[in-house]
Computed example of a mutant assay.
Amino acid sequence: MGWTETFELTGLVLMLAVLAPLAGLYARRRWLSSRGGVFDCALRMRNGSWATGVARYAAEELQWFRIFSFSARPKLVLRREHTMSIGRRSPEDAEAVVLFSDDQIIRLRNRDTTDETVWELAMNPQSVTGLMSWLEAAPPGGDRYSGLERD
């Protein structure tokens, strides 16, 4: 094998190394979209940073997936009957740099008062409306009050 064949083979391997992960991310996004309503949604992580992702409605769950991951499993699952909204706010100056310009931040927590975990999701206003509608459409007999107040 001459140097030109080696050079071409190396170029092909490098091109595949770049294109294969991109094709995998694209295929994953298409797969997620085919299984329910998907929308862009950032999640505040425990360390305070924001992670870009997508969320989807799956029956009685809101599932959140990292955008740059090959995992088919959601990183966060919020069950509708256990989740309630505790507020909405605009991004602060430092947050506005990493989030989309029109994003709003929704604060959610577990209806169980012993669980103090609060999740913050950033999304566009149309997705906020969809999330609030989904939360309020609780099964019959459930508490439909979401406690939404603007900060």
Rank of each mutant, 00 (worst) to 15 (best):
L9H: 12
T10E: 12
T10F: 15
L14C: 07
A17V: 06
A17K: 00
V18E: 13
A20G: 00
A20F: 07
P21E: 09
A23R: 06
A23F: 09
G24L: 09
L25W: 12
A27Q: 12
L32T: 10
S33E: 06
S33A: 11
S34P: 10
S34H: 12
R35M: 05
G36Y: 11
G37D: 02
F39D: 00
R46W: 00
N47S: 05
N47H: 05
G48V: 00
G48T: 04
A51C: 05
A51R: 13
A51H: 02
G53I: 06
R56D: 01
Y57I: 10
Y57P: 01
Y57K: 03
A58W: 12
A59R: 01
E61T: 13
Q63V: 03
F65G: 11
R66V: 00
F68K: 09
F70K: 14
F70Y: 10
A72Y: 07
A72P: 07
R73L: 07
P74D: 08
L76S: 05
L76W: 02
L78Y: 06
R80M: 08
R80P: 06
H82Y: 15
H82N: 15
T83N: 09
S85T: 08
S85M: 12
S85F: 01
I86S: 04
I86F: 02
S90W: 02
S90C: 10
S90M: 14
E92Q: 11
A94V: 08
A96K: 11
V98G: 06
V98M: 04
F100G: 08
F100Q: 07
D102I: 06
Q104M: 13
I105H: 06
I106M: 14
I106P: 03
L108P: 15
R109Q: 11
R111M: 05
R111W: 06
T114E: 09
W119P: 05
L121D: 01
P125R: 15
Q126F: 13
Q126W: 09
G130I: 14
